[in-house]
Computed example of a mutant assay.
Amino acid sequence: MPKTLLALNWKMNKTPTEARSWAEELKEKYAPVEGVELAVMAPALDLSTLSANLPAGVAFGGQDVSEHDSGAYTGEISAAMLKDAGATYVVVGHSERRDYHGETDAQVAAKAQQAQKNGLVPIVCVGEGLDVREKGEHVPFTLKQLAGSLKGVGADVVVAYEPVWAIGTGKTATADDAEEIAAAIREALEKQYGEKAAEIRVLYGGSVKPDNIAEICGKPNVNGALVGGASLKVPDVLGMNDALK
Rank of each mutant, 00 (worst) to 15 (best):
K117N: 12
A52H: 12
S70H: 14
S78I: 12
M12K: 10
E28A: 15
E162P: 04
K29P: 00
S207Y: 02
G205L: 01
A182H: 11
A79V: 06
D99H: 11
A225Q: 08
Y73S: 05
G148R: 08
W165H: 09
K11C: 10
A72T: 12
K191L: 00
R133T: 02
A225K: 12
V208C: 03
G75F: 04
K196H: 14
L143Y: 06
P163W: 01
I77Y: 08
Q113G: 09
V202H: 07
M1D: 00
A166K: 08
R98D: 10
I123R: 10
R186C: 06
V124Y: 05
A39N: 07
I181T: 15
A155I: 06
V58T: 00
S51D: 12
N9L: 08
S51Q: 14
L120R: 14
P32L: 09
A44G: 09
L146I: 07
H101A: 13
P43S: 12
C125H: 09
D99L: 13
C125K: 13
V58P: 01
F141I: 03
D105W: 03
M12V: 02
N223D: 14
L82E: 02
E190P: 05
D69K: 14
A19Y: 00
G61K: 12
D176R: 12
K209P: 01
V33N: 01
K27M: 06
G93I: 04
G129K: 15
P16T: 13
